[in-house]
Design a protein around this nucleic acid. Structure first.
Length: 438
RNA sequence: GGAGAGAUGGCUGAGCUGGUCGAAGGCGCACGACUGGAAAUCGUGUUCACGGGGAACCGUGACGAGGGUUCGAAUCCCUCUCUCUCCGCCA
């Protein structure tokens, strides 16, 4: 499990590493085309295929020239030894060297174009993902618990938290800006208790090994998991550096094994981290409360598994995330995302949505995805199916277990009392050292 | 941030007065021999990517990354990244 060796080389510089498998574009272009069209992506396959055929023509040319050059070079020492004149040969080889240089230059430009296209093309959805164009086409697959009916007018969590003086958005706006929050007193303790509770659930009752990752990651890592190059505007980049604030622990934890061959599978990790998102394009949405902040806490589950097992592992992952909500006694439902709502790197995703009284609907609190070999291919993460066998790409999965801020919001709203206090979920009472927040 | 040392295959470790070096040796691993079976021992084999081909196979590239010198670079030069040691600074 930890025999993995991390090599230090920027993976995206590998000349031949492509994300979406270019061999699929070559051999089953129609299938790839159909799959990508399901999620609204058109025209890429044709572009890549055209560049690919140009590329191969050039490769044949330059390699033939190089073979000639190598053959001639090989004779140089012998000829010199025999006292023959090699200047004429050198003249000739010099010309070939120029041709080679020109072709290689053209080739590297085409390579760059292909790499950029492949890096910017999303994953193909699994066969069993329902087709659709937006979240309206997602499919509810499960419901747990029932939304509580209140015998008083329930308040949104920002009003509850502000009244109890455990949340403070105004001060955060002054200190930092919009979409940030302070938690205070029991609010702060609740945040901390939840992080511990979630990690303990996954690592003591579940199979996950805890990881505490860096909160910044390199550009190469952001590429590896698929946040870049396409979604630059969603990420916070630290000025004058190539570091990005992580939008999720998925980035550092998945990239722990970048450029490596895992000796033992599966590998399961649970990691707490703060998460940072620019939320570009969501201006005006969820402007109040804890739902959509630039910084929030999350416990993330990350899995590296054998290809044949990833579908089953996704089901287990969802169950692991659900368990947290069940123990907290929060009503939720599970929806399967349609092709049009899938994240960039995902082939199949289940969202878990918690009941949020103020929204009068279910709100996403976890997103569990199977990426198949999409991330593994980008990040070059492999395993051996048997000792001595050729390394193959692993499958990666991850899911929130859970978003902590949204869990706080759900607890405040679902367990609020008529007197303005909030009942603490039973499983948190020891850690909170109180049964009620008031 | 300053000074120095280093980065080679799954691991370890030679090569670094430029040319049969994809790279010795060792370990590990695979197969075979020996054995009732195993250990030990012996033998053989064991990088990856890309391209061509139905295939056997052939070719090209890769010694941290990028660029340069050269007919030819693991070997020489430049830039960058990372690691280690010492110093400075700092939770």
């Amino acid at each position: 499990m930890r025999k993995a060796r991390i090599k230090c080389q920027p993976f995206f510089m590998h000349k031949e590493v492509f994300m979406l498998d270019i061999k699929r574009i070559r051999h089953v272009p129609d299938q790839v085309k159909v799959n990508l069209e399901k999620r609204g992506v058109k025209g890429v396959v044709e572009k890549i295929a055209a560049l690919d055929s140009q590329r191969r023509t050039l490769i044949v040319k330059t390699e033939a020239l190089k073979a000639q050059r190598n053959e001639a070079s090989k004779q140089v020492p012998a000829k010199k030894k025999a006292g023959e004149d090699v200047e004429a040969l050198f003249e000739q080889l010099k010309k070939a060297a120029d041709d080679i240089k020109a072709i290689d230059l053209a080739l590297s430009e085409i390579d760059a174009q292909i790499a950029m296209l492949l890096l910017s093309t999303p994953n193909e959805p699994c066969e069993d993902v329902p087709c659709g164009t937006s979240e309206n086409d997602n499919m509810e697959v499960k419901k747990w618990g029932a939304p509580r009916s209140f015998d008083f007018e329930p308040l949104p969590h920002w009003d509850i938290g502000t009244a109890l003086d455990i949340l403070d958005f105004e001060t955060a706006a002054k200190v930092t800006g919009a979409r940030f929050a302070f938690s205070k007193g029991l609010g702060s303790r609740l945040e901390r208790a939840l992080i511990g509770f979630m990690l303990d659930t996954h690592t003591l009752e579940g199979p996950y090994t805890e990881v505490f990752p860096p909160f910044m990651a390199s550009r190469a890592s952001m590429m590896g998991t698929g946040q870049l190059p396409k979604f630059e505007e969603d990420a916070f980049r630290v000025a004058d550096t190539e570091y990005y604030l992580i939008p999720t622990a998925e980035v550092p934890v998945t990239n722990m094994y970048r450029e490596s061959i895992l000796e033992k599978l599966p590998v399961y990790h649970a990691a707490y981290s703060a998460c940072f998102r620019a939320e570009a394009g969501s201006a005006g949405r969820d402007t109040r409360g804890l739902i959509r902040l630039h910084q929030f806490n999350k416990v993330e589950l990350v899995k590296f598994v054998r290809p044949g097992e990833s579908d089953n592992e996704l089901s287990k992952l969802v169950a692991d995330a659900e368990k947290v909500l069940q123990k907290l006694e929060l009503p939720y439902r599970v929806v399967q995302l349609c092709t049009g709502d899938l994240g960039f790197a995902s082939a199949k995703t289940y969202d878990i949505e918690v009941w949020m009284p103020s929204y009068n609907r279910y709100v996403e609190i976890s997103s569990c995805s199977n990426f198949l070999d999409f991330q593994a291919r980008r990040a070059n993460i492999k395993y051996r199916s048997a000792p001595g066998a050729k390394p193959e790409f692993v499958h990666t999965l991850n899911g929130s277990g859970l978003a902590v801020g949204r869990t706080v919001a759900a607890i405040l709203e679902n367990f609020q009392r008529k007197d303005g206090g909030v009942d603490v979920p039973k499983v948190l009472r020891d850690a909170m050292k109180t049964d009620v927040i008031s």
